[in-house]
């Protein structure tokens, strides 16, 4: 029997939806599952956590994310609860926290997994920007895995058993790396790495103001807004919107690329999207070789029509 730990990520108290993927994976393994939550009250989350063995609640006066404290606390939890494997989300926080935990718990870590086998401690992750898939195994010690959002099918559980709640205290040691503040962006944007639908624009947008038509489309679909590097470099879009090798890796159900040629460095950032749609006026554009559906035409005509059509069918 291996003890499976899950780091449940809460964003300002909100249960991130990718946690359900971790829970689905762990429940399926049939091993005892222990979920760790840093929060003053676990009650609001118990419905989501049904059927697992323990909820480990980390308590402390100030539970705001500080990487050193979180990592040391989790390293102590691994010891106390004899966790053999710990999984988390490959999110901004997961990327920051898990390597710190790996160092503190002297554990091996594989980030950005597309599949994890909890019995054999094997995982598959993209390498060479997704041009290849690598299978890794962590033999000894605790094994850590972070899992890319939107890759594991979420299964609702029929389990009714409520987990046992145990509490541990937040580590209160010194902070080497101190987060002094978090500046939120003015507009509440959707997190691209977890978005289910993304509308993206390229150099063809020709101007910052023209991104408004993509934003309108994204809004109708409740999706996020992305961009190619050419669009970011031309300052039509902000750096946090860039998808690709030097930008974000995204994995939505639907990716709509508008006026993007489909260069390899862009493609590697969105290739695992379930469905790729391309709108481009050049029928020879490489993006059409990679898209599931394509429309050859001027995006300034197609995008507003698309918005109206989606609006119609979604209402």
């Amino acid at each position: 029997m291996a003890n499976i730990g899950l780091y449940i990520e809460l964003k300002e108290g909100v249960f991130k939806k990718s946690n359900r993927e971790l829970l689905s994976l762990a429940r399926k393994s049939g091993q005892p599952v222990h979920a760790v939550l840093f929060c003053p009250d676990v009650q609001p989350y118990l419905e989501e956590l049904k059927g697992i063995q323990t909820v480990i609640q980390v308590q402390g006066a100030d539970l705001t994310y500080q990487p050193d404290r979180y990592a040391r606390t989790l390293a102590a939890v691994i010891q106390e609860f004899k966790l053999d494997i710990v999984c988390g989300i490959f999110s901004a926080q997961g990327k920051d926290l898990f390597p710190r935990l790996a160092a503190k718990a002297k554990a091996g870590l594989v980030n950005d997994c597309l599949a994890v086998d909890l019995d054999t401690r094997k995982a598959i992750k993209p390498v060479y920007s997704g041009k290849l898939l690598a299978e890794y195994q962590i033999d000894a010690g605790t094994a850590l895995f972070t899992i890319r959002p939107n890759v594991i099918a979420v299964e609702t559980t029929t389990a009714t058993k409520t987990p046992e709640i145990k509490t541990v205290a937040l580590d209160n040691g010194e902070l080497q790396t101190k987060i002094v503040s978090v500046e939120k962006s003015a507009s509440q944007k959707i997190d691209l790495t977890e978005a289910e639908i993304i509308v993206s624009g390229g150099r063809a947008m020709k101007g910052k103001e023209n991104f408004a038509i993509l934003e309108d489309l994204a809004k109708v679909l409740n999706g996020g807004l992305g961009a190619s590097r050419a669009a970011v470099d031309a300052e039509y879009a902000s750096a946090d919107m860039q998808v690709g090798q030097t930008g974000k890796v995204v994995n939505p159900k639907l990716y709509i690329a508008c006026g993007i040629s489909g260069a390899i460095q862009h493609f590697v950032g969105m290739k695992t999207s379930k469905i790729i749609v391309a709108v481009n006026k050049d029928p020879e554009a490489p993006i059409f070789k990679k898209a599931d559906y394509g429309i050859v035409g001027d995006l300034f005509t197609i995008v507003p029509l698309l918005k109206e059509e989606f609006k119609k069918v979604l209402s």
Partner: peptide
């Protein structure tokens, strides 16, 4: 601690459709 077992090529997407 972390051992590479093997490398593989991801499945190619079938050619899409132009509407």
């Amino acid at each position: 601690k972390v051992r590479l077992l093997k490398l593989a090529s991801p499945a190619e997407k079938p050619q899409g459709r132009i509407i």
